[in-house]
Computed example of a mutant assay.
Amino acid sequence: MYDRILIPIDGSDAAANAIPYALDAAKTYDAGLYTVSVVDTGETDDDGEKREAMYEEFEKESKAMVEDVIERAEREDIRTTAGSIAEGKPHRAIRQYADEQDIDLIVMGTHGRRGILYPLRRSVTEKVARWADVPVLMVRLGEDED
């Protein structure tokens, strides 16, 4: 059913909470696990120096997160690919990566926020789920974990 599963990670508790679900799905379906971390450069202007500085600042942290997921997957004999670091608006970068890698399922964490202001600040996870061409498994962070 699923041959290629993507787990986008950003260092948040919600993303970390989704990793075991992605590992379990990959193991269940004998699927390859893809990992991407996005450096959000979507709010910067076109200044190349500013963008480069932002990318360098978060690149090391992103690489460490990606390598951690790959190591966890390999310990469970799950096929992995080299993790990737992308840049741009996170929801767009994740969807683009999923399209380029022919991903079948995206597993993402979410805080599950609600309320009157929620429509004004929709989450990256919701934006990916709303516009992705593949199923998105949204793993909600428990209330006691928030």
Rank of each mutant, 00 (worst) to 15 (best):
D77T: 15
V38K: 06
Y34T: 02
L137R: 08
E100D: 14
G109D: 04
K50G: 05
L105M: 05
E100K: 14
M108R: 02
R51V: 12
D30A: 13
T35C: 03
T44W: 09
I103V: 13
I103T: 09
M65D: 12
V69W: 00
V36D: 01
A73T: 04
D133L: 13
A22R: 00
A64D: 10
R79A: 13
P119A: 12
T28R: 12
E52M: 09
A53W: 10
P135N: 05
L23D: 00
V38P: 00
L23A: 02
P119Y: 10
E67H: 11
E57W: 14
A129F: 03
T44S: 07
T80S: 01
E76G: 10
E43S: 12
E100Y: 11
V107G: 03
A132S: 14
R92Q: 15
A18R: 09
E49F: 14
D45V: 08
E56R: 14
S84I: 06
E49Y: 10
V124R: 09
L117T: 15
E100I: 07
I78N: 00
V69H: 00
T35A: 02
Y34R: 07
A98E: 03
V39I: 15
Q101D: 06
Y118W: 06
R79N: 11
K63N: 10
V128W: 02
E56W: 09
V69N: 00
L137W: 05
M65V: 07
K63Y: 11
A132W: 04
H91L: 02
G112N: 09
A82M: 15
A64H: 09
A93W: 07
A26W: 03
Y29K: 09
A26M: 07
V124C: 05
F58V: 14
G48Q: 11
T80Y: 03
H111F: 10
H111Q: 13
V107Q: 04
M65A: 14
P119M: 10
D45H: 10
K27I: 03
E57F: 14
E59A: 15
L105I: 05
E71N: 13
D99F: 10
I106G: 01
Y55M: 11
E43A: 08
P20A: 08
G32A: 13
E100M: 12
G112Q: 13
S37V: 04
E43G: 08
E59M: 13
V107S: 04
V124P: 03
D24Q: 15
D104P: 00
A132D: 03
K89E: 15
H111C: 07
T41I: 08
I85A: 01
S84C: 08
G32S: 11
A22T: 02
E57P: 07
V36G: 03
K127G: 05
E100L: 12
L120I: 04
I106L: 00
R51P: 02
A26R: 07
G32F: 06
R121S: 09
A31G: 05
D104C: 00
P20F: 13
G88I: 04
A73I: 04
Y118C: 14
F58K: 15
L23Y: 01
I85M: 01
K127I: 02
A82S: 14
E52T: 09
D47E: 06
Y55R: 13
A93G: 10
M108H: 02
I78T: 05
Y21W: 11
I106R: 02
D133G: 11
V69D: 00
N17V: 12
E76D: 10
T41G: 02
A64R: 10
T28D: 08
I103D: 03
V38F: 03
M138N: 05
H91F: 13
V136I: 01
Y29Q: 06
D24L: 11
